Amino acid sequence: MSSSSKKQKKQRNKAFYKYLDNDRIYSCSKCHTHLAKHEELISKAFQGRLGRAFLFNSIENVILGKNEDRTLITGVHTVKDISCVSCRSVIGWKYVYAYQEDQKYKENKYIVEKTMLSKENNWDEQY
């Protein structure tokens, strides 16, 4: 492959990454790819596979896995694993469907394991 072909391929791959321009950003703890603005955070009081997890309205720069019914602490949900688009680490899951009525608020929201998150930019001690 010529150097110009490699450069074009690299530029095409970068087009899938979204840079989040914000004071407080959550990023992948492995590769620091931007994942979410702080404003997208709904709750820090969730449980993931690895311990504490955060619930977000939206996430950027992730790859969605296949639908899978999974029994979680709050019942059965249809979920898709989410992986960082850059390093391919599984960072959490997306809620696709909640079978229980009181869990419907989670649909189309994202769980990200706390251990898979880093804080970027201007975080103050108060946060």
Score class of each variant (00 low, 15 high):
Cys84His: 06
Ser2Leu: 07
Asn13Glu: 10
Ile25Asn: 02
Gly92Ile: 09
Tyr26Phe: 15
Ser5Ile: 11
Ile91Tyr: 02
Ser83Ala: 15
Phe46His: 13
Glu60Arg: 03
Lys104Met: 03
Asp81Arg: 07
Ile91Leu: 11
Thr71Tyr: 14
Trp93Cys: 03
Thr78Glu: 14
Lys44Ile: 11
Ser29Cys: 08
Asp124Lys: 15
Lys10His: 05
Ser29Phe: 06
Ser29Gln: 09
Lys30His: 10
Lys80Tyr: 04
Asp81Tyr: 12
Val112Arg: 01
Lys6Cys: 01
Lys30Pro: 00
Asp102Trp: 12
Glu40Lys: 04
Leu72Pro: 08
Gly75Glu: 11
Leu35Phe: 06
Lys6Thr: 02
Ile63Ser: 05
Val85Ser: 11
Asp23Phe: 02
Phe54Asn: 09
Tyr110His: 06
Ile73Ser: 15
Val62Leu: 01
Ser29Arg: 08
Ser83Leu: 14
Cys84Thr: 10
His32Leu: 12
Ser2Thr: 14
Ala15Gly: 03
Val62Thr: 13
Leu64Gly: 01
Lys18Asp: 07
Gln47Ile: 15
Tyr127Leu: 12
Lys14Cys: 05
Gln126Trp: 07
Asp81Val: 08
Lys104Tyr: 03
Leu55Tyr: 03
Tyr97Val: 10
Glu60Cys: 09
Asp81Trp: 04
Arg49Ser: 09
Lys9Gln: 13
Met116Trp: 03
Lys104Ser: 02
Gln103Ala: 14
Glu125Gln: 08
Glu107His: 08
Val90Tyr: 03
Ala53Ile: 05
Gly92Cys: 07
Glu101Arg: 11
Trp93Leu: 06
Ser4Asn: 10
Leu72Phe: 11
Gln126Gly: 02
Trp93Gly: 02
Tyr17Arg: 09
Glu39Asp: 14
Asn13Arg: 09
Val96Phe: 06
Val112Asp: 00
Glu125His: 05
Leu55Gly: 03
Tyr19Thr: 13
Tyr105Cys: 02
Arg24Gln: 14
Asp102Arg: 10
Ile111Ala: 00
Val79Ala: 09
Asn67Ile: 08
His77Glu: 09
Ile111Phe: 04
Glu39Trp: 00
Cys28Ala: 07
Lys7His: 03
Asp124Gln: 13
Asn57Glu: 15
Lys18Asn: 10
Thr33Cys: 12
Leu117Ile: 04
Gln100Trp: 11
Asp23Cys: 03
His34Gly: 00
Lys66Pro: 07
Thr33Leu: 13
Glu68Arg: 15
Tyr17Thr: 09
Asp81Phe: 10
Gln103Gly: 06
Thr74Asp: 14
Lys94Thr: 03
Ser118His: 10
Trp123Val: 12
Gln47Ser: 14
Thr78Met: 10
Asp102Phe: 13
Lys37Ser: 01
Glu39Arg: 04
Ile91Ala: 07
Met1Glu: 06
Leu35Ser: 03
Cys84Gly: 09
Lys109Tyr: 01
Glu68Trp: 09
Asp23Val: 02
Val96Gln: 08
Tyr19Pro: 00
Ile111Ser: 03
Gly65Gln: 12
Phe56Glu: 01
Asn13Gln: 11
Cys87Asp: 12
Arg12Trp: 00
Trp93Thr: 01
Ser29His: 08
Glu68Thr: 10
Asn121Arg: 13
Ser89Ala: 13
Glu113Val: 02
Cys28Gly: 05
Val76Glu: 13
Ile63Thr: 12
Ser3Val: 05
Glu125Phe: 08
Phe46Ser: 02
Cys31Phe: 06
Tyr105Glu: 05
His32Phe: 12
Ala36Met: 02
Leu20Ile: 15
Ser118Gly: 07
Ser5Val: 09
Val96Asn: 02
Lys94Met: 15
Glu107Met: 07
Leu20Asn: 03
Phe54Ile: 00
